[in-house]
Design a protein around this nucleic acid. Structure first.
Length: 784
DNA sequence: AAGATCAAGCTTTTT
DNA sequence: GCTTGATCTT
């Protein structure tokens, strides 16, 4: 079977004039250090690039692509370059273009594993029983489907939640186990019914002409394994393979790559075993550790010169990671100036930690810390678990410190976006039962459980889609009055919308707006009085705007499933708050690492579930955290913390003991040290170190003291922005109705300095800096 | 069928 | 402590 020709399947136009390029010198090679240069120039055969944090990995990788292209070794469409995130793929594409100083048309095979697999599967899906227009389910759809199967199988969904099954199936797919390949030892998972349900789920997906994320890879792998001709074609076509973040690959991805590289072995894997932090979702560090065994004679290049951090930061990070066993081992070095030591500070509780960090950020911003003034964009707070973020959000909201949370709910995962997408999905493919089910009673159409069961029955009885089932049920009269009318109307509307989708002369953006308006979906949110409603409407507008970049609705839906990132930065300088996981690949001049307490970090659960393996992964997380910092890294811990509403005390993280003393400066909060609870917070070993470092004479202590006496900041209510703030305050009087981004609507109950005491309708009574509040009647005009 | 009230459970996250 | 889902009530 070779149904494709080179022209259409790999339609990446070759815009580079190869001969001209190869004749010229390669200026892009000049900026490389010897190791990077070696990694770039070893074009043939297997290469493992062990790239430590901040060693110019992306530079080496992109230069390698540029080199492949400009030497004429490969055309843009003959290079397979896979990443894990869209962001990484985008960045790579941009940098290759910049290196070559011209647009590289094509590179159609530079993308995420999933995006590449979608492309392959659209073409060869029939080999695993898929039509080329299959839909991609996200986790939400997946779980709802599993729930139906669990109920149908008469299993108590309380004891055996769908999420759990979804996790098990994902795990199996990560390991490249189709239902027939699941080992007996594991098959009994989920109340002995795991494999059975897995098989049913796959059957159901096939019926729906749908795949989940795991399937994208697994199906392609199965095709490669069972269709030699197809595999051979791609082995020949992808003449050079590059893999980013190799330490994060799972078994399925590993097998996939190994098959593709088997013939020519021109595979270059880049990664850092010390930064493997995704074991819990199937990544196998073993893949990178085993590379040389898999590809005998591989060139192994170590990138060890770090261009990011100061020696102290690097030293602290190396000290921690050294405690891990089974590393490939790298010794990072830098030519940077010594800089500040990593700073360590203990606090009484989580709130105080947040307060201290807030003040520290303000001080650094003003240049008070003895450093240059640091912009908020240059600072980040990296936490282990997202619930830690709240303390910071609360604190920063109160003191009026702008922040941004990275991660969080992604745009396309938001309820209103998913609802809107479901409408579009049914309009495009009336057979999309999952989508229909989602919006059938949203907004409320009087079609509750009972009505939906009737529709289901009608559909199943006649072997048709839910939409058709609804048509039948409404026609026959199985539905009660209100539901019947409403459903009949909805079916009619979908007929109209579907015909408009098919009619190419229609503008898809107008159609999308029409669907959202006529269905009553927009109105539903307009009538909603909850504080989130305006934001949701804004998101819907955003969604419609995103349509502009696509030719039609179908095209949009196809792409959206794979693009889940949400990079909406509304300008303005802000401190970033994110998890350590989200911080991988990023860097900041100043980094705060709060919550270094045993149980929280390293996470108790991680250690309980996977023992030493888990602990080592936590340690790598610590390593990732420290190495994000360029100039200043501050680790902190709290003696007490409220977890799920309960106060709990904890000991400083064991990772703190692993920080080499010579790279650490122990800070003692002014006025707290020796004051009883400070000592408690510091714990025994930390106390020792504090004593050795002679906290009272350390530069950090002096700076802190200097700051405390110089800055009026330390006294509350007399902020440096007093003028501005008072201006903001004067805009309000008691009793005003106001709107706040996070807390929603409320009434001003009192004014205290630059803060307003507001009774929020949803959030209760809060004191908030005036400039973060607007008059309620203006709230509707302001996009946020 | 829809709102209200109550119990349970709770890392890390990309596609 | 707070959100989510399931059950109860009208």
């Amino acid at each position: 079977m070779s149904s494709f020709s080179e022209e259409d399947a790999f339609a990446g136009a070759v815009s580079l004039s190869q001969r001209a390029m190869s004749a010229r010198a390669a200026p892009y090679l000049d900026g490389l250090n010897p190791a990077q240069r070696e990694a770039v120039e070893a074009l043939d055969g297997p290469v493992l690039m062990l790239a430590g944090a901040g060693t110019g990995k992306t530079k080496a990788l992109t230069t390698r692509i540029a080199h492949l292209l400009s030497t004429g070794k490969a055309r843009p469409n003959e290079i397979l370059a896979v990443t894990f995130t869209n962001k990484a793929a985008r960045e790579m594409k941009n940098r290759v273009q910049r290196l070559l100083g011209q647009t590289v048309e094509g590179m159609p095979w530079l993308g995420t594993f999933h995006a590449v697999c979608v492309k392959l599967l659209r073409r060869h899906g029939e080999l695993v029983g898929l039509k080329s227009n299959f839909t991609i389910l996200d986790t939400d759809d997946q779980v709802r489907l599993l729930k139906q199967l669990i109920i149908a199988a008469n299993i108590d969904e309380k004891r055996w939640p769908p999420r759990m099954l979804s996790g098990i199936i994902d795990h199996w797919k990560n390991r490249a186990w189709t239902p027939d390949k699941v080992p007996v030892a594991e098959a009994g998972a989920f109340n002995q019914r795991g494999v059975e349900l897995y098989a049913q789920y796959q059957t159901r997906l096939k019926e729906l002409n749908a795949v989940d994320f795991g399937d994208l890879l697994l199906h392609v792998l199965v095709i490669f394994q069972s269709h030699d001709d197809v595999l051979t074609q791609y082995q020949r076509w992808f003449r050079f393979i590059l893999v980013d973040e190799y330490q994060d690959t799972n078994v399925a991805q590993y097998l996939w790559l190994r098959l593709l590289a088997a013939a020519h072995k021109n595979i270059c894997c880049v990664g850092d075993d010390d930064q493997s932090i995704y074991g819990w979702r199937g990544a196998e560090v073993g893949n990178i550790l085993r590379f040389e065994a898999d590809f005998p004679g591989a060139t192994v290049v170590r990138l060890e010169q770090n261009y990011r951090s100061t020696p102290h930061i690097l030293g602290a990070a190396s000290g921690v990671i050294a405690a891990n066993k089974g590393r490939l081992g790298k010794t990072l070095f830098t030519e940077a100036e010594e800089g500040d030591k990593l700073r360590l500070i203990g606090h009484w509780d989580g709130e105080e930690e947040a307060r201290w960090i807030g003040e520290e950020i303000e001080a650094m911003r003003g240049g008070t810390r003895g450093l240059r003034p640091v912009d908020l964009d240059e600072m980040a707070i990296l936490v282990r678990a997202s619930h830690q973020m709240r303390a910071f959000e609360d604190r920063f909201l109160t003191i009026g410190l702008p922040y941004r949370v990275i991660g969080g709910p992604r745009f396309y995962e938001r309820m209103e976006i998913r609802d809107a997408m479901a409408y579009f999905r049914v309009a495009c493919s009336p057979d999309d039962d999952l989508a229909f089910e989602r919006i059938c009673n949203t907004p409320k159409r009087g079609a509750g459980d009972k009505a939906q069961q009737t529709i289901q029955r009608a559909a199943r009885g006649h072997g048709v889609s839910l939409l058709e089932g609804a048509r039948l049920a409404a026609a026959i009269g199985d539905l009660s009055g209100k539901a019947r009318n409403e459903i009949a109307k909805l079916v009619q509307q979908f007929d109209l919308w579907h015909s408009k989708v098919l009619d190419k002369s229609n503008n898809h953006i107008e159609l999308a707006e029409q669907i959202l308006d006529e269905s009553g979906y927009t109105a539903m949110w307009q009538n909603d009085k909850t504080p989130e409603a305006p934001g949701r409407l804004e998101n819907l507008k955003e969604l419609v705007k995103a349509l502009e970049q696509f030719e039609n609705l179908q095209g949009f839906l196809e792409h959206v499933a794979l693009i889940m990132d949400n990079e909406t930065d509304d300008g303005g300088s802000k401190v970033s708050i994110m998890t350590l996981h989200a911080a991988k690949g990023l860097e900041f001049p100043a980094v705060f690492l709060p919550g270094w307490e045993d149980g929280l970090f390293p996470s108790q659960r991680s250690m309980d579930e996977t023992g030493l393996k888990g602990l080592e992964e936590e340690r790598r997380l610590a390593y990732v955290g420290i190495t994000r910092a360029e100039e200043l890294c501050t680790v902190s811990f709290a003696a007490n913390r409220r977890v799920y509403g309960q106060w709990q005390s904890a000991l400083p993280s064991r990772f703190i003991d692993e920080l080499p003393e010579e790279h650490v400066e122990v800070l003692t909060p002014p006025g707290l040290y020796g004051g009883g609870y400070g000592a408690v917070a510091m714990g025994g070993n930390i106390m020792e170190r504090a004593a050795k470092a002679d906290g009272y004479n350390s530069p950090g202590w002096k700076r802190l003291q200097a700051r405390a006496s110089n800055r009026p900041m330390a006294q509350p209510k007399e902020s440096r922005n007093a003028v501005i703030n008072l201006d903001a305050v004067s805009a309000f009087t008691q009793g005003d109705r106001v709107f706040h981004q996070k807390f929603g609507y409320g009434y001003v109950m009192g004014i205290e300095g630059d803060k307003l005491d507001i009774e929020f309708e949803k959030a209760g009574s809060k004191k908030v800096v005036a400039k973060f509040v607007m008059a309620a009647d203006r709230a509707d005009d302001v996009p946020f």
